[in-house]
Design a protein around this nucleic acid. Sequence first.
DNA 1: ACCCTCCGTTGATCTGTGTCAATGCGCAGC
DNA 2: GCTGCGCATTGACACAGATCAACGGAGGGT
Lengths: 246, 246
Amino acid sequence: MNKVLPVVENCASCPIRHRAVCARCDDDELEQLNQIKFYKTYAAGQTIAMRGDALDVVASVVAGTATLERAIEDGRTQLVGLLLPSDFIGRPGRDTLQYDVTAVTDVTLCCFQRKPFEALLTRIPHVQERLLEMALDELDAARDWMLLLGRKTAREKIASFLMLIAKRTVHPDGQVLGDTSRIELPISREAMANFLGLTIETVSRQFTGLRKDGVIALDGNRNVRIPDLETLLLESGDDSDGGPLI
Amino acid sequence: MNKVLPVVENCASCPIRHRAVCARCDDDELEQLNQIKFYKTYAAGQTIAMRGDALDVVASVVAGTATLERAIEDGRTQLVGLLLPSDFIGRPGRDTLQYDVTAVTDVTLCCFQRKPFEALLTRIPHVQERLLEMALDELDAARDWMLLLGRKTAREKIASFLMLIAKRTVHPDGQVLGDTSRIELPISREAMANFLGLTIETVSRQFTGLRKDGVIALDGNRNVRIPDLETLLLESGDDSDGGPLI
DNA sequence: ACCCTCCGTTGATCTGTGTCAATGCGCAGC
DNA sequence: GCTGCGCATTGACACAGATCAACGGAGGGT
């Protein structure tokens, strides 16, 4: 518990700068951002924030994986966001959080106090613009996700999830790769079930099914090899023309 | 077909101005918006735009109901957005549309050519801010919707939908009402099925079930009376603390 | 080595919702 | 009035995925 986690020095060195909030800032603007930011780390399993919490910071994920969850009292839980490096948490202009945020691996956040950040937005308009762009990207992702939840079969859901992770895999050098022949699942079977609107048993059975049919190969629980990406794409029921590989 | 639809003169007279993109504009700024805008009407059933279309306008819904749909080739369709008066269509910064947009009733749109609108955004920062706010509201709505699609039963889905429509009902004078004792469904059973990730048969059966249990009363196909709102809320499986009634 | 816990897998069975098919109802056109 | 069409309802049945239960394997603590 509470291991010492690596600390990142500043946004300019963020491996994910090209997608993060400061993507288009010049050195001067980065300096302004640097003055109001700080890093925070959470160990795997820790709760970062809970639904209803007053939210006085906004943040970017620098490293690790976190989840956004919505739950019903009786325990049913739906993942409503998967936060990977470069994703943004929190919303300028609203001060309570609507969801539970949990670190599923060790997570490093680049945080900004909300008030000074909002003030900064008015001075650096293209950060505002970037936020809008990110929000709309997330909205698109949420809508694809809705198609998955409402209309896809269990097998298609799993295949779609694998494609999603493959596409979003970010390598240590910051490049978003199309390397989809081997992926590492960032979350447990349970989290996947909550992501896809399934039970863990069904998730497990579908993995077995895909393995038996030669669509994927499992190497431990978290490593998936994909011999033929085309086949997996077919299984996913996706007819998207690719779209941005973000 | 193609009846004469009423024309709205300018944003300032929009009945829904308080929630639309120009919510916080002063007269001078409204004038700037007026110069690049125009109105367009669509008859019920018309396609407003299709997935993949080049999108050179953005728009606000002034009157009527439209849907945003995502479909798989085999015909399975999921509604990913329900556009009611004051909702915004299109995204500054991206030039193709990801979804099919259809008018389900006669619809009046307040349109802006995208390029001049984007130029205007840089001059009127609080419109940009307003767009971000609306995008984030939509994201919140999408996430609640994901919980519904992934984890709720058919009955809960119907009850949630009724609550949603009740909350969003806008009266002609522009006031968002809490009048939830009688609502008019803006969409057909089929569209509801696509909204909720169900089949029309299941939607129908759930309506019948709720009626037989005295939770709702039906007056024709599109009119629902809700004797006791608390009961319906209970059925919806929602434990949200209300949140903004938007 | 042992136990224990956590996580994932597999099996047997149940059930909510989908599927297929028939029927009902309102409304427009003639 | 009748007919035809679109939409909604109802019924019988099938099946995908949930539920309940047992088991397996990896890793950590002692």
